[in-house]
Amino acid sequence: MRPEDVPLLFQELAREFADVTGMSVAATGSLARGDHRTGPDGDVVSNLDLIHLVAEDAYVPDIRAVVGRRMRRISDTFGIETTSVIARLPAFRLAGHAHYRISMRPEWFCDGLGLGPEAFDLPGHEDDPRAALAWMMQPVWARMAVVVVLTWHYTGYNAVIYLAGLQSIPRELYEAAMVDGAGPIRRFTSITVPALRPVLLFTVVLSTIGTLQLFDEPYVLTGGGPDNATLTVSMYLYQNGFRYFDFGYASAIAYALTLLVSVLGAVQMRLMGEKDK
Rank of each mutant, 00 (worst) to 15 (best):
A65V: 03
R69I: 06
R70A: 08
M71L: 08
M71S: 05
R72S: 02
R73K: 06
R73S: 10
R73D: 00
S75H: 00
D76R: 14
D76N: 10
E81D: 13
T82C: 03
T83E: 15
V85S: 08
I86F: 02
A87K: 14
A87E: 11
P90V: 01
P90G: 04
A91L: 12
A91H: 13
F92K: 03
Y100T: 00
I102E: 13
S103K: 12
M104T: 03
R105N: 04
R105L: 15
R105Y: 15
W108C: 04
W108M: 04
F109H: 08
C110D: 10
G112A: 06
L113E: 01
L113C: 06
G114R: 05
L115N: 02
G116R: 06
G116S: 01
P117S: 12
E118D: 07
E118Y: 08
F120G: 00
D121F: 09
E126N: 07
D127V: 09
D127I: 06
P129D: 03
R130K: 09
A131I: 07
A131H: 07
A132I: 04
W135V: 11
M137D: 09
Q138I: 05
P139D: 04
V140K: 09
W141N: 15
W141I: 08
V147C: 13
V148I: 14
V149P: 07
W152T: 05
W152Q: 06
H153W: 15
Y154K: 13
N158D: 11
A159Y: 12
Y162H: 08
A164G: 03
S168T: 04
R171A: 14
E172F: 02
Y174Q: 12
A176M: 10
M178D: 11
D180T: 12
G181L: 12
G183T: 01
G183L: 05
G183P: 03
I185D: 04
